[in-house]
Amino acid sequence: MRRRWLGPTQPWWGAAFTAPVLVLLVCFKFWPMSYAAWLSLTNASLTDRARRFIGVSNYVRLSHDTTFIGALETTARYVGATIAVSMVLGLALAVLINQKVPARGVFRTLLFLPAVVPLIVVPILWQFLFHPYGLVNNALKALGLHPVNWLLSPQGAVGALVVATAWRLTPLCMVIYLAGLQSIPGELYEAAKVDGAGAVRRFQSITLPMLKPTLLVVVVFAITLTVQNFVLALVMTGGGPDNASTTLSLFVYQTGFLGFQMGYASAAALVMLLIIVAFTVVSLRAFRIEE
């Protein structure tokens, strides 16, 4: 069934309206993308103008590079843990706020504030909180636990990054969930209540299934945001100690802009793109199947 078209059909005007955006996206997204693909096959350097085609050597080198393999593992752990924490916590908060509580608007506003703090301030603030004598260790001591050398131990550094990222990401997830929750018709819950379903049962059989599309949006959003971001690692840990908290995007930055190896960095960037595309495609597939 085709919808009736009443708008203008002049092809040139439609293309003209879209052209400026298209030109900019081609110049600053698609061209760099293809350029990266080419660079990844060369020995391009930031300091040397001469570049030579070296085939897949950069990719072969990546597969042997322990720093790169380590960065992949760190990314998996960092992204996995961050996503798990922010998705679960974000959902819990959204469900709580979605109840009939007084002043829920105030809670929503206050809980959103970590997402308002400038991105560059987040690692500076958390670096201080994770200081050996900082607030986090004070809290641990107050709870009778051992203080942790957060930023100077391999495990602690990744843990600290996870906490800082999740702190900033959870409110964003919460808000997306809230929109999803509010689109679930209230009659469903009323009917379930009449049928004697408890709160847990209602959550399992109504909230979760109805929230599936939202969950997928949150997954793609959170993964893309966490994979690409290297500001937190750069400022909080610098990737240390001994590369233990070097994520993929930080590896790209360090190799390209500090190591001047633009070709090699481009190869790593393409691997990063592959990961983002893979996750997006898988999630979109899941979407399609649902519909």
Binding site: W5, P11, V21, W31, A36, V252, A265, A269, L273, T280
Partner: peptide, 27 residues
């Protein structure tokens, strides 16, 4: 507007969402 290739154009624009700055920062 109805014009040739607008669906492709829309897809291309959508695709750039998967191209964050960090992926293309070197080139």
């Amino acid at each position: 507007y109805r014009f040739l290739g607008r669906h492709v154009l829309l897809l291309l624009i959508l695709a750039t969402l998967m191209l964050p700055l960090e992926v293309v920062m070197v080139p």
